[in-house]
Design a binder for these strands. Structure first.
Lengths: 187, 187
DNA sequence: CGAGGCCTTGACCGCGGTCAATGCCCGTGG
DNA sequence: CCACGGGCATTGACCGCGGTCAAGGCCTCG
């Protein structure tokens, strides 16, 4: 729980009161390699925080598992579309190793928003940061070449390369594993 | 102002008190065709709401104006990255026709958040909707072919095609105008 | 009537995808 | 301790989608 509270304070400084309320609503979840946190078709009812370990999100695009997202320590995780709209998820979320999460039900979080303006503020601020990250990924996907995308990753998220097989990384960048391999060979 | 308040109520129902506070903080801005609402290098200090008209966002990518976003009636507009981080914008926002906006300074909105929990909630909910839309655009950019992207646009945003020159639409989809033209020719 | 904006069409080509073979590393069991 | 198998990565041959460059058609407006 310590990591979680520490990280949360990097978004917005909560009162002791709010911190206690938070603590009361989050429970620990543990996953092992290849366990699914969410399976497509399910409705995602929880928001998670990664205490330790790593996850990936992937679509099944005509039989292929296509990774589009990674989560590591101090990342929030959910199937955002499913969580917000409470409809069936189209993607899967899977542990890439032994992973420890803090979990909160959507109903609990909504209740926390009502009781503590500052918690809703914290989430509002978190949304802003996540939105900016997604914008960057969109721009990369739309306007950059394969090599440019790899170099961006090298500069801004090198930790991904240390913890994830290259097949996943390639899909994450929107290129094939073969192309990624050739790009890396030229350095 | 009526359109604005009406639209805002589709996110979250505000008290009369909050509505009055909102009204007091927004001022009208008028633009004419090709006027710039924001120029790259500037810091974006305001959030806008489109009452009437249309805007586009574009990057200058080696001398080319590359459109990546459109805004129409009832859309919120800002250079999100610049607005949130208060750093120089890398993109431009331009009116595509005579356009009427409602404008609020970041400082005023922050003040509104402090005074009215419900306004911060409304923005939190707006963020959720905009995040989901951006996710869709990311997935399209990353995983879909040119023809698939055009068909998605036809189904989900046909109004864009009626109001925007095809050159802008092509860039918005991440393809060239020539490719878009050939796709359309085959229908 | 001429100029310029917008769109289409054609010829060409290169980036990156597909398919398939091979290499490398490591864990497991004989 | 070595042999095998499977997961992961590399490499090569081929090709097609979509980009580039250039020309031409068709409006609208001055």
């Amino acid at each position: 729980m310590h990591n979680f509270l520490q990280h949360v304070s990097s978004y917005y400084t909560l009162s002791m009161d709010a911190i206690k309320a938070l603590q009361a609503c989050f429970t620990k979840v543990e996953l092992y390699k290849n366990d699914l946190l969410l399976k497509e078709g399910q409705v995602c009812t929880h928001l998670y925080f990664i205490e330790k370990g790593s996850l990936r999100g992937f679509y099944n695009i005509d039989g292929k598992e296509t990774t589009y997202w990674f989560g590591f320590e101090n990342d929030f995780v959910t199937s955002f579309h499913s969580y917000i709209t409470q409809t069936a998820a189209v993607e899967n979320i899977q542990a890439m190793e032994h992973t420890v999460l803090w979990s909160v039900a959507k109903a609990s979080l909504t209740q926390l928003f009502n009781e503590h303006h500052e918690i809703e503020r914290l989430v509002r601020i978190a949304y802003e940061r996540y939105y900016i990250k997604l914008e960057e990924r969109f721009v990369n996907a739309q306007f950059k070449t394969a090599a440019q995308k790899y170099n961006e990753l090298l500069q801004h998220n090198p930790h991904i390369l240390n913890r994830v097989p290259l097949g996943y990384v390639a899909a994450y960048l929107g290129i094939t594993q073969e192309t990624l391999s050739r790009i890396r060979a030229k350095l």
